[in-house]
């Protein structure tokens, strides 16, 4: 039932497809059909492009009370990432010891399983972030 709901967002979930306003240049992720700053002036001028996938941790939390689909990863790090292009997004930071995460930490996007719809359901894939080493 939910397959199409996840499928239609795949470009942004897999490849961080965003929009840039042709009027003011500000970046929206996920894509928007018009710019929250320029409104009418941006209609028809929102250009789709792919974020390069690198950014910095703006804030984060180590989550202990977790949704059941993330039981195996408990505790995990959820973070707000400020992408180098300017947009912020929310994602897990993985392959890291939670105590090494800090505000300002450099991270890059990777693709991981976000969850599934039970053993008979489809598997959801999307972005998570890993530390940029060195």
């Amino acid at each position: 039932m939910a397959a199409p709901r996840f499928w239609r967002e795949a470009p942004s979930r897999y490849n961080l497809v965003a929009t840039r306003c042709g009027n003011c240049g500000s970046v929206s992720f996920p894509p928007r059909s018009f710019c929250p700053k320029c409104h009418r002036k941006s209609v028809g001028r929102m250009e789709r492009f792919r974020l390069a996938g690198k950014g910095s941790v703006y804030t984060y939390s180590v989550v202990h009370e977790v949704p059941s689909e993330l039981d195996m990863q408990k505790p995990y790090v959820i973070a707000m990432i400020e992408m180098d292009e300017g947009a912020k997004l929310t994602a897990q930071v993985i392959d890291v010891d939670p105590k090494d995460v800090h505000i300002g930490m450099r991270v890059r996007a990777t693709l991981r399983r976000l969850g599934d719809e039970g053993p008979d359901g489809i598997i959801h894939y999307g972005y998570k972030f890993v530390p940029i080493l060195n």
């Binding site: 804030t59 949704p67 959820i78 999307g126």
Partner: peptide, 21 residues
């Protein structure tokens, strides 16, 4: 749901991120 919760955010963790910042 689509861009916070699906990516692993819980309601408490969103507030925890506010607190951390």
């Amino acid at each position: 749901q689509e861009w916070e919760v699906t990516l692993g955010a819980t309601f408490a963790s969103l507030h925890a991120m506010i607190a951390k910042r």
